[in-house]
Design a protein around this nucleic acid. Structure first.
Lengths: 203, 203
DNA sequence: AAGGTTGTTGACTGATTAGTCAACTATAAG
DNA sequence: CTTATAGTTGACTAATCAGTCAACAACCTT
């Protein structure tokens, strides 16, 4: 097997960065190639279209984050602490990105999904799939919290969807306002939404 | 004063329709002109750029909706009923749009804001302003509900922001999944989030 | 009916877009 | 060392993009 290269990975990373910071529509293949230090011919050697790149880049991005998710949502951690520490992690990540690029960027999946979900089914489905995976972590934490009597959530799936909506809405708000403040109260708001007994008491 | 025309209005309406259904980036000035039955020269007679059109179209869109908002959020209506009937109104509007164009389109403000808020400050600020106006309706309904002892919300503004996040998140979810289901439980979810005493009891 | 203002037209520009392609090069297996 | 394969290159389309412009038409005021 001849020459091995990391151009494919560099292209996906560059694409995620640019699309997240700007948007899918305003990110050109040329710009992605330039940022990745690759030529257009290489781009189309690895991907058959910009759309296909987006789908694969989204998947790769999720896979990169998955390990961290598994750690944060470890079953060995008390369920509400999982949520607390996840929201803290998100807040810190957003704050860091803000420092680096001067803008609060919100959730890349939701932003891309809203932008082109109605036009490009492949990308829309990919985003949907990833958000579902994310919701599963919420769902099992909620189910565990219910089982332990920490909250009352007989329908864990429905509660998880509500929590995802609140979470994604907060991220969208933060992106639009270019302000991390809506994300500061993410954990408290989530616990309040779940009706956690000691929402305010818990430090 | 010579010839009066409705081309300006037609252009703004066409722009909102196309941008809402597709996206800002994938909506060309040519497409807007075609849908409005106008020529490009006319476009640039009324608007100095695509960005300026977007700002004005957003404002005009909000002004069109404002009367309905004032009616729904009338102080003569019990506060929680205002929210209930608003969410019902949104659900019906989304269902209707779905029937007409085959896709659940979510909130145009949020979608546009997420897409280009980081790139075009004028559009981002306009979206921010409109979403703030929307939140004000929630806020006063929540404050009234608190005053009447229907809910406990000492900080009405914070609660309203949470509600906006949940609301916008649900709309984003619906757009991404192309499914109105996340919007069916909007009213119930909102009342649950607000800790309304008779969230489930109320029909 | 004259003149000035407002609105309309379509052809135009130059930049940018996604995507193509044939020739080229590096490499690892035989 | 040979050769098939994987990866690289840059020049190339053809379409589309936002925006320009000078000439033209309709209308109100006077």
């Amino acid at each position: 097997m001849p020459r091995q290269s990391d151009v494919e990975e560099r292209l996906m990373n560059a694409a995620m960065d640019l699309i997240w910071e700007h948007s899918y529509g305003s990110t050109s293949v040329d710009a992605i190639c330039e940022k990745a230090g690759a030529k257009k011919g290489s781009f189309y050697h690895f991907f058959e279209s910009k759309s296909e790149l987006a789908v694969k880049a989204l998947e790769a991005d999720w896979q990169r984050k998955k390990a961290r998710m598994d750690e944060i949502f470890s079953a060995s951690v008390p369920p509400l602490d999982r949520l607390r520490s996840y929201f803290k992690h998100v807040y810190e990540g957003q704050t860091k990105a803000h420092g680096e690029c001067g803008a609060v960027l919100g959730c890349p999946y939701c932003t891309i999904g809203c932008e082109i979900g109605t036009q490009d089914r492949a990308i829309g489905d990919q985003v949907h799939k990833i958000l579902d995976r994310n919701a599963k972590y919420f769902e099992s934490a909620i189910r565990d919290a219910h089982a332990q009597g920490l909250i009352s959530a007989p329908d864990a799936k429905a509660k998880a969807q509500m929590l995802v909506a609140f979470f994604q809405g907060s991220l969208a708000q933060a992106r639009i306002e270019n302000d991390v403040r809506p994300l500061q109260r993410l954990a408290d708001g989530a616990l309040e939404l779940l009706g956690a007994k000691s929402a305010k008491a818990a430090k």
